[in-house]
Simulated scan of single mutants.
Amino acid sequence: MTEGNFVDYVKINLESGKGGKGSVHLHREKFITKGGPDGGDGGRGGHVIVRGSKDLWTLLNYKFKRSFRAGHGGHGAKSRSTGADGEDVYLEVPLGTVIKDADTEEVLLEITEDGEEQVLVPGGLGGRGNWHFRTSTNQTPRYAQPGIPGQELAVIMELKLLADVGLVGFPNAGKSTLLSVLTTAKPKIADYEFTTLKPNLGIVKYREFQSFVMADIPGIIEGAAEGKGLGYYFLRHIERNSTLLFLIPADSKDVKNEYEILLDELRRYNPEMLDKERLVVISKSDMLDDELKNEMKNELESQIKDVPFMFISSVAQLGLVELKDKLWKMLND
């Protein structure tokens, strides 16, 4: 999937169907000239229904078509025949989609399971036919209910990626390179900052035909939690990752400070993110000789406590097997 095709935020307009009118009809047939009321009910208007699909990874389907309208219910008929229900509209979305009211930003629903269906905008009820209004004193009612109008709603769809491991780091930390080496994903890679402008997903193959999903989140900058840069658009994709991999390059001026800045951005955006499993990984470690690596290791042991760390090199293929083992253990413990 090309970067331009990854759509994770759309605003669309929805309209459910109107209910059909109830029928006003009096029974007539040979030898029965004054039969009682037999008008049927109107059919309900069509719903707008959201359905989750594991085969979708983006909201691209809603990038160009922004309005959806369900069908109207059919009118009731004689012989107490109920009108047909209006045609429902199904909106298929990727797992992890959150839908909000565009005006109030209230969360209306979330889709997290494949095949899950939820009615987002219910159709109007059909009107009752005159058969329902017969009484002992009014045996031939000549009125029925009209159908209830449908509803209009403008919504915002936000996709929060469902991945096992989320890569967190500053721009140009090597996240895309690591993803391309561990998975079959082909993210854009270059030696300048903000190469990645959209999240990328890849499936990491593990032993005995097992696998887990890794997400490359665009680089976080200081102030992202306040919306600096594209802060909120990046950070929301980390909310659903069960394990966070903090990637910091070996040539960083201050590894501990870089880690603390990243951690603070997550804390300010959503404190619950700090409850996730964390792993600090020093990338580009092929630039370090044994002496520098031991020195950095001793510093990390004293500075970053209670969080495991590793040294890897995506280019030189160093420590990648151990990294997959460590992540698998963290995910399954």
Rank of each mutant, 00 (worst) to 15 (best):
Lys329Gln: 14
Lys297Arg: 12
Glu29Thr: 10
Ser302Lys: 13
Gly219Pro: 03
Glu87Gly: 15
Ala70Pro: 02
Tyr90Val: 05
Gly96Leu: 02
Lys186Trp: 00
Ser242Tyr: 00
Asp254Ala: 02
Lys188Leu: 08
Tyr233Pro: 02
Ile111Trp: 03
Ser16His: 05
Leu179Tyr: 14
Glu295Met: 08
Leu245Lys: 09
Ile156Pro: 01
Ser252Thr: 14
Arg80Gln: 11
Ala102His: 10
Leu235Val: 12
Glu260Tyr: 11
Val98Met: 12
Asp216His: 08
Ile312Glu: 13
Glu110Tyr: 07
Val315Gln: 13
Val121Ser: 05
Ile312Thr: 14
Ala163Trp: 00
Gly126His: 05
Asp325Asn: 13
Asp85Ile: 00
Asp216Thr: 04
Ile148Ala: 02
Asn130Phe: 00
Arg66Leu: 13
Glu322Lys: 11
Glu258Ala: 15
Pro249Tyr: 09
Gly129Gln: 08
Ile189Ser: 02
Leu161Ala: 02
His132Ser: 08
Gly45Phe: 00
Gly150Ser: 03
Gly52Pro: 02
Gly227Asp: 03
Asp114Lys: 10
Arg236Asn: 11
Asn200Lys: 09
Ala102Asp: 14
Asn138Tyr: 07
Thr58Arg: 03
Asp41Pro: 04
Ile304Thr: 13
Gln151Trp: 01
Ala225Met: 03
Leu300Asn: 09
Asp264Cys: 10
Gly40Ala: 12
Asp164Pro: 09
Gln210Glu: 12
Asp306Cys: 01
Thr82Ala: 13
Glu15Cys: 04
Lys160Asp: 01
Asn61Cys: 03
Lys198Asn: 11
Ser23Gln: 09
Pro271Phe: 03
Asp333Met: 10
Lys329Tyr: 09
Leu108Asn: 07
Glu110Thr: 15
Leu162Trp: 04
Gln145Asp: 09
Ala225Val: 10
Ile248Gln: 06
Glu92Ala: 06
Leu279Val: 10
Gly229Met: 00
Val121Ala: 12
Val280Asp: 02
Phe212Thr: 13
Pro308Lys: 05
Gly36His: 14
Ser81Val: 12
Leu201Met: 11
Ala185Asp: 00
Ile32Asp: 06
